[in-house]
Every structure is written in structure tokens, then in C-alpha cells.
Computed example of a mutant assay.
Amino acid sequence: MRLPRAVRPVPPSAPVPGDVLAETAGLRVRLGGREVLRGVDVTARAGEVLALVGPNGAGKSTLLAALAADLPAAEGVVRLHGRPVRDWSAAELALRRAVLPQAATLSFPFTVEEVVRMGRAPWARTRQDDDAAVGAAMAATEVTAFATRPFGALSGGERARVALARVLAQRAPLLLLDEPTAALDLRHQELVLRVCRERAHAGDAVVVVLHDLGLAAAYAHRVALLCAGRVAADGRPLEVFTDGLLTEVYRQPVEVFRHPRTGEAVITPKRDEPPSLTLS
């Protein structure tokens, strides 16, 4: 008996800058009986980096997981590429969005290159430019030099960059990144956010969860500030990052300045003046 041939998922067409690739409307999500998101509306467009910021427990990672179709909505709707997420098959979703979770763990001794190559799995039955995609992703994240090392032998920061390379190799037009800079040093934090900007410039939509407001101010085209499961503000960083709003949301006195050279917002906690030191 001949089994029916599997239907190939149709890859998405290249988005036009400004196209809405992901959105939520009236989104409510409950976890363990608790309402984590309460009527959230957000939109991610091709050609921009959208940063999700806010204090711990605000719902940032939950919102990212809902956009990825990894968490169901209790109410409201999540759309990817104009269609409710439930209308896409798993194979179709994998061609349209790539997800970087907070933690990257593997139980088997895969090499770095093998891990990055896993990002090509959604394209197995469509096109075969795997080597170019893997090589470009590894170069962008600066992991080529240890391509043959076991993933488990890497430092936390190196693993984070390899995990991002896997996501980039997937070449989906929507990137959903959960705290991609958390384990990274200063140089590689800047590297990762530059890569996000480059992907947006190339036409992708990038949604990134960040705790560092300075990075969000420097690299995001738009920020959504979450507080207690709601969007407190959504707009350009200079519009959202104000002394009063950040002080209220974070419950910590904050000062916002304009960088004298770039004009970007510089955010710092308001601290008491340290006592002066006297040398005897």
C-alpha cells in the first residue's frame, strides 16, 4: 500500500516594509489559574525591531510565547501573517516564525554546527541553500571559530549565541527572541542587537524581550512597555521612556537623558549622592 505523499508547506512571500507579520487583539492568557496577560494589543511589522520591556512578572515572555503560538489565548486573537495562529500547521508556522527561548539546553552531544543546522529543518522539503544559511548565521553571531566543539562544552554566553545562530539560519521573516542578551558580555550584547537591526533592515519583523532599557532605546524602532499584564505604553523609545512613566512602572525613581551625540534616551536609576571619600 502506497502512503500518500506529504504536502509541502508553502513558504511565505517576502514581506513588504510595514506589513503586519504578528499581532494580538484583546489577548488574555491564563497560567495556573492566574491571568498573566489582560487585554493586550501589540503589532509587529516588517522592517522594525519591537522591544518588549517591563519589570519582572509583567508578562513579556508570556506575550512572546503567545505570538509564537506556543501558548493558547484564553480570550482575544493572535494573528501571524494575517491569519489566526490556529489556522497554520506546525510546518507552516516553522517557515514563518523563528523562536529563541530564554534557555538553550540539549541532552545529546551535538556540535555547534549541528545545532545551528537544526534551524534548517523547516526547509527540508522546499529548498537546499542550507550551507549558505548556516555559514551566514554562524558568521553573524561569531561562532564559526568553534563550529566543531560540543554544544555542552560552551560557556553560557557562547551557547546563547549558538542558539541565536540556529534561529537566524531558519530564515523566517518573523523573529521572536526572549532575552537574547541576558548571558552576554558588553561586546556581544551590542552584536546581537546590531544583528536584530540588520534583520529588520533586510525586511524581517523582530520582536525581542529586553531588560536593558538602554539597549532597547538604542536599537528598537518601537517599544511596548508592559506592566501587570497590560501595555502601559507603545511607541518610539523617546516617547515611551520618560522619567514619570518608568518611575511608576518600575517603582524605582528613574532619570532619562538625551545622549549628547546620538540623541538616544539614556536611562539611569536616580540614586542618592554617594558620600565623599577623604584620604588621610
Rank of each mutant, 00 (worst) to 15 (best):
G26R: 15
G26K: 14
L27H: 07
L27W: 10
L27C: 08
V29R: 09
V29H: 08
V29F: 13
L31N: 03
G33S: 10
E35Q: 12
E35G: 03
E35F: 03
V36D: 00
V36P: 06
L37K: 12
L37F: 12
L37G: 04
R38D: 00
G39L: 11
V40K: 11
V40E: 00
D41Y: 12
V42W: 10
T43G: 00
A44E: 01
A44C: 06
R45Q: 13
A46W: 06
A46M: 09
G47H: 11
G47R: 11
E48K: 11
V49Q: 11
L50N: 04
A51H: 07
A51Q: 07
L52S: 02
L52E: 00
L52Q: 01
L52F: 02
L52R: 05
G54R: 11
G54L: 08
G54M: 07
G54F: 02
G54N: 07
G54W: 01
P55N: 03
P55I: 04
P55H: 05
N56Y: 11
N56T: 04
N56L: 05
N56F: 07
G57W: 08
G57T: 07
G57P: 11
G57L: 09
A58M: 05
A58E: 00
G59K: 12
G59Y: 06
G59T: 08
K60M: 04
S61V: 12
S61G: 03
T62S: 15
T62N: 09
T62I: 14
T62D: 00
T62L: 13
L63I: 10
L63F: 10
L63W: 08
A66M: 08
A66G: 05
L67M: 12
L67I: 10
A68D: 03
D70E: 14
D70V: 12
L71Y: 12
L71T: 10
L71V: 15
P72F: 03
P72G: 04
A73D: 05
A73T: 06
A73M: 02
A74E: 15
A74Y: 06
E75T: 09
E75G: 05
G76H: 10
V77N: 00
V77H: 00
V78I: 07
V78F: 05
V78T: 10
V78L: 06
V78W: 05
R79M: 04
R79G: 01
R79Y: 02
L80Y: 02
L80V: 15
H81T: 04
H81N: 04
G82R: 04
R83I: 12
P84T: 04
P84H: 05
V85A: 14
V85G: 06
V85M: 03
R86M: 06
R86G: 14
R86Y: 13
D87R: 11
D87C: 00
W88T: 06
W88S: 06
S89C: 02
A90K: 10
A91T: 13
A91M: 08
A91S: 15
E92F: 01
E92W: 02
L93T: 03
L93V: 09
L93W: 06
A94L: 07
A94I: 05
L95Q: 09
L95P: 14
L95D: 09
R97S: 02
A98N: 04
A98F: 06
V99D: 00
V99Y: 15
L100T: 02
L100P: 09
Q102W: 11
A103I: 05
A103K: 14
A103V: 12
A103G: 00
A103M: 01
A104E: 04
T105R: 14
T105H: 14
T105W: 13
